[in-house]
Computed example of a mutant assay.
Amino acid sequence: MNKKGKIPVHQMDDWFAGVYMKPFGAENSSPLAYEISRPHRHDFYYCVLVDKGNIELEVDFEHVQLMDQTLFLSYPGQIHRIISAQLERGWFLAFNPSLLEEPLQNILDQCLSEIILVPLAPEQSMSFFSFISHVYSVYTDPAQLFQQTILQSLVTALVYQLASTYLSTERFHLIRHPARSIEITKTFKQLVRRQFKSLRRPSEFAAQMNMTVSHLNDTVRSVTGFPVTYSIQQELMREAKRLLYYSDLSLKEIADSLGFDDATYFNRLFSKVIGVSPGTFRKQGEKTVHV
């Protein structure tokens, strides 16, 4: 495995207004053909609408299959690689997180799923396809007055629509839970995503949310099926796995980057949560990841 010391990060160099778009189809070369099977992370969001075709991905060690009429959103920082792609009709859209206003950013950070994958009804897929086509017409028209402002507003509206579609599915699965319990769980999820390196104990999260540890733990467990410690550890170990698989950082350097003062404790916790030691996990990755 040819690693370079840290995970490659694809950045938004020279993109107009913090946006990159491209259609894909039979007449186009695939926009996703670059560095296929090379693990990397982005510092931006990217969205894929597959109206017809399929893409096989690995996202943070989870296998993801995008089939006909599927919408997918990747968060900044997630590690992914494209395993295969046969694309006939759809869109690729990437955008800078700074485009999103705070309420929309909060909505995305509070999603309970780590992978935003939304199956669409035919009419929904047609609606999204049409919407993105309109965004693209603005994106490719330098004569459009107020092009940058219009483009950024349209992308924001599109992401709101995507979030609405995802949340409709999420709420269906959470319908038996009280609204207040869902709100608490989502706020906790957002804190974990944003502060998992600096906040480690359930009591620290509870203090941030102005509630007792027992109330936070009981609420999160009732909604997700897991205690708060599970979510905290999963977020930490997800980043640890990224660094073990796709970097040459030493175990001590990884422990330091995750806020562990004691590398031995990090090793014990990783072994307990993941089921194998960090060293074993890294060796398994060297056998299975080809870049």
Rank of each mutant, 00 (worst) to 15 (best):
V50A: 02
Q124Y: 02
F260K: 00
S137M: 04
V135G: 00
V59P: 01
L145C: 05
V9W: 11
L117A: 01
P23T: 06
T185M: 09
G25V: 08
R200L: 11
S222Y: 10
G90Y: 03
F128R: 01
S168R: 14
L99Q: 15
E235I: 04
Y34H: 10
L191K: 10
Q284G: 14
E101Y: 13
Q161H: 13
L216K: 09
A85L: 02
D13Y: 15
Y136F: 15
E102V: 14
V159N: 04
M211D: 07
G90S: 07
L236T: 04
R89M: 11
F226W: 08
R180V: 14
T156K: 08
A179P: 03
A255P: 01
L120M: 07
Y166N: 06
Y45M: 08
Y139T: 02
S271W: 09
V118P: 00
Y34F: 15
D60K: 09
M21G: 01
D256T: 05
V291T: 13
P178N: 11
L216T: 03
A255C: 10
H42E: 14
S74E: 12
L174W: 05
A33Q: 14
L243M: 05
L112H: 06
M12E: 09
S125I: 07
T169P: 00
N28W: 12
S113C: 08
G53S: 02
R89I: 00
S247Q: 02
R282G: 06
S168F: 11
G90H: 01
Q105T: 11
F72D: 00
L73I: 09
K197N: 09
